[in-house]
Design a protein around this nucleic acid. Structure first.
Lengths: 317, 317
DNA sequence: TTGAAAGCGCTAACAA
DNA sequence: TTGTTAGCGCTTTCAA
């Protein structure tokens, strides 16, 4: 912890705190000789300003709370990485917290942050109970992608836009029978939009396999999917699509020749898979820009913004 | 930011700050009736203690600086994820910083943290210039895996142990000709140790392909590696091994039937690849335990500790 | 040009 | 049982 203080320098220089402060801050109203002397002394003594004390005095904060996913791997890690860089460029640093298990833990964590943090970015869906609890806390909440805290601002993601483009891409590539695998309503909405946009002649046959959204789930539905005789499948997540890729690899099914595959999330693993996975990407840059803007300008009113996902075509479709 | 203060409650309750403080802290020396009244008032007014002020007064800190990799994806993200959880359980929260580009930026960042943070965990190799600079700062540095800051403590990883076990595993599986692909000395050391440990009869033929350590590099050396007629290859990183997997997939080479493959890092992508990648894992749990221990006990003396990597056998070898 | 002093919100020794 | 007060390290107003 900071160890040498203004006072100590003042004593050593046989002057007042105010004068030392002037010298250090490069302010007017101090003789050149004295300034130089103090500066040298400060550097010799290894002075470091205590920003915590400064912020207390100035009622400022240079930290931003970030509450993330349990599993930092995956999309969240890329989002966070980008956010950290942008915040840093603006002179802010993130304080990281895991999403709370219960109301108690959550309250405790945020109280530990109080006085340090004005804004908290929430990358996590929270129970209504928790959201109510939070709205009574002094911080301003920026919810990413989920229900906003009352009085907080929210940035949401339109997942359907990228899915729609993906499906249209499949149709343009000649697919006649497309299945949706998974269970997330946000994805289905994209599917629907694409189908609605197509004429009766263009519209492919469409089906749905209900399934979980992890690697193993994608693997598990492999045989059903193949049995259905589809041209193409859209999966709720990349992990899931990767699971299906594993299935088709084991059973000698060629992707995309026999069946085209699209995932969702733009995970790193999908960029490196065989074949490389076509996917839907989150609007990371745009959202993070907005977050930094809100933090910098200390916007504390409730607002909301929406951002669109986009389709990325790679080897699998 | 916290908005209602002890003073405000004191005024509202028509008493002194000290009494309010006693009530809130559950301390002795206050009448039951008064305590109850104050507690109710505080909750009605939405009081939140300002921890920044408390810490300033108590000369304490509940944050830990963490300087990470540029790219938070990969091993680092898993390490960080685990560390955040452990720190939180101990009542600490990480402040995240990107590894600095230059001495200026680094100094600036750490100065912004002063007063908030006693310990800074460094997950990044730093130039000697930077390390010297840091040793003059008030924080205590815990270097993970790299040259330590003078007066700091360091936790290092013995990468060779896991590599050695991987190679021995290959030999036990009957491999007669093994190549090392990459360029990292830490990996070669493991190879050497394995070869030294084997008798002349057991020792496989051994070769080396010099290469970069990314996905594309692994792909690029595919043809050379196949041409060499090896039955197993060890790659410096999982990304690289994944690149080779892509090559072999494209050229219809069966892994592990024709060639066994081992990577390094235990990346998520390698758990999901086809085939699942055998790899060498970092000692994440043990290291993070030690970090939390150091932070909790406010160990400020220079120390060093070493941790071992371990081999994980999956489908590719 | 220089310094005394108040105060950010909190804790705790000490006095009443 | 209650209150006064000093002080953590800093900034800044105001007076000298």
């Amino acid at each position: 912890m900071a160890t040498v203080t203004l006072k100590q320098i003042a004593i050593a220089a046989n002057t007042s705190i105010r004068t030392v402060n002037r010298a250090l801050k490069g302010q007017q109203g101090i003789g050149e000789a004295k300034r130089k002397e103090i500066l040298e002394l400060a550097s010799k003594m290894g002075y470091t300003p205590n920003i915590a004390a400064r912020n207390l005095r100035l009622q400022r904060s240079n930290f931003v709370g970030v509450i993330g996913y349990k599993n930092i791997d995956g999309v969240f890690s890329r989002r966070l990485n980008d956010l950290v860089q942008r915040l840093e460029a603006a002179g802010f640093y993130p304080i990281l917290g895991m999403p709370p298990e219960n109301v108690e833990d959550c309250r405790k964590m945020l109280l530990e942050w109080s006085g340090f943090v004005k804004h908290v970015v929430l990358f996590q869906s929270l129970s209504e109970e928790l959201r109510n609890e939070l709205s009574s806390l002094p911080q301003h909440f920026i919810s990413i992608d989920y229900e906003s805290i009352s009085d907080g601002t929210s940035l949401t993601i339109d997942r359907s836009s990228g899915v729609k483009d993906g499906i249209l891409h499949l149709v343009k590539s000649g697919c006649k029978k497309i299945f949706w695998c998974g269970k997330l309503a946000s994805r289905e909405e994209g599917l629907r939009k694409a189908l609605d946009e197509l004429s009766d002649a263009e519209r492919p046959e469409y089906g749905h396999i209900q399934a979980g959204i992890n690697f193993d789930d994608g693997y598990a539905i492999g045989s059903d999917l193949i049995a259905s005789g589809v041209d193409a499948a859209f999966f709720d997540t990349d992990r899931m699509a990767l699971g299906f890729l594993k299935y088709s690899w084991r059973h000698n099914i060629k992707v995309p020749e026999q069946i085209k595959v699209i995932g969702f999330d733009n995970d790193t693993a999908g960029q490196q898979s065989c074949p490389a996975l076509s996917t839907v990407a989150h609007p990371i840059d745009e959202m993070n820009n907005k977050i930094v803007e809100l933090v910098e300008n200390a916007h504390l009113e409730a607002q909301s913004f929406e951002f669109k996902t986009s389709f990325i075509s790679r080897e699998s479709a």
